[in-house]
C-alpha cells in the first residue's frame, strides 16, 4: 500500500483512539451505575457450581456458550468443505517422539483435571478442550497424520458432541422442565458437568481437526457410502 495513504490512515486511526479513550474516561468518571457482579455472586449458590465464571458460562448465559460451540462447529465444517487435508509431517525424530509420548498423556490428564476443577476454581471446558487440542497438535507435529483423531465417521460424531448434548439437555428441559436450559437446582451440578465433558471432547477434537486443516481421509467403508451419495 501507498506510504502516504497508510500514514493518513494512521493519523485517522490515532484520532479515533484518542476519541475513544476520552469517551472511556468520561464513562469511568461518571457514576458506575448498577452492575451484574453482585447479582451473579448472590445467585451463585443456586447455580450448581461454586465458581462464578463457570456459573455465568454454563448456567446464567448458557445460551451464549451453546452458540459459541456452534461457531466452532461452523468453522470446522467450513474447513472440511474446502477439501482434503494437506499431507502431514515426516515421522518425527526420536527426541520429539519421546517428548510427544510424555506430553500427550500429561495434557490429557491435565485437561481432565481442569475440567473437574472448573466447578469451583479457575478452569473448565474451554481450557481443558484447548489442552486436548494442543495434544492433537503435538501428535500431528510428531508425524501422526490425523492428529490422534479417529476416522471420518467418528470425527463427525465428536465435533457435534458438544452442541448436541447441550441442545438435547436444553430441549428436554424445555419439554419436561421449567424451560429451555433452565436446570432444576438439584441436578444442576451434574447436568453442567455432563455438558462440560461433552463440550471438552468436542472442543479438543475440533481444535485438533482445525489444525489438521482439511477433510479427514475417508475410511474404506464410508468412502463407498459417500460415493453412493454423490452419484
Amino acid at each position: 500500500m501507498n506510504r502516504d495513504l497508510s500514514l493518513l490512515i494512521g493519523i485517522l486511526v490515532s484520532l479515533l483512539a484518542l476519541l475513544l479513550i476520552w469517551i472511556f474516561y468520561t464513562t469511568l468518571a461518571a457514576d458506575p451505575g448498577p452492575r451484574l457482579a453482585p447479582l451473579a455472586l448472590e445467585q451463585l449458590p443456586n447455580s450448581g457450581v461454586s465458581h462464578p465464571v463457570t456459573a455465568v458460562l454454563l448456567n446464567y448465559r448458557a445460551y451464549d456458550t451453546l452458540l459459541e460451540l456452534a461457531v466452532l462447529l461452523a468453522a470446522i465444517l467450513g474447513i472440511w468443505s474446502l477439501g482434503p487435508a494437506p499431507s502431514g509431517f515426516q515421522p518425527a525424530g526420536p527426541a520429539l517422539t519421546v517428548l510427544a509420548n510424555w506430553i500427550v498423556p500429561l495434557a490429557i490428564i491435565t485437561g481432565g483435571y481442569l475440567l473437574w476443577v472448573g466447578g469451583h476454581a479457575p478452569g473448565g471446558a474451554f481450557q481443558a478442550g484447548a489442552l486436548l487440542g494442543s495434544a492433537g497438535v503435538i501428535l500431528r507435529l510428531a508425524g501422526h497424520e490425523r492428529a490422534g483423531l479417529p476416522n471420518e465417521a467418528a470425527q463427525r460424531w465428536l465435533v457435534v458432541a458438544g452442541v448436541g448434548l447441550f441442545l438435547l439437555v436444553g430441549l428436554l428441559l424445555a419439554v419436561f422442565g421449567a424451560g429451555f436450559l433452565t436446570y432444576p437446582k438439584a441436578s444442576a451440578k451434574w447436568l453442567i458437568l455432563l455438558i462440560e465433558t461433552a463440550a471438552t471432547i468436542a472442543i479438543g477434537s475440533t481444535l485438533a481437526a482445525a489444525y489438521v486443516g482439511g477433510r479427514p481421509p475417508l475410511a474404506q467403508s464410508t468412502s463407498a457410502a459417500s460415493k453412493d451419495l454423490g452419484a
Partner: peptide, 9 residues
C-alpha cells in the same frame, strides 16, 4: 480463567 484460556487457545 480468561488468562488460562488466552494462553491455551
Amino acid at each position: 480463567d480468561v488468562a488460562l484460556a488466552e494462553a491455551a487457545i
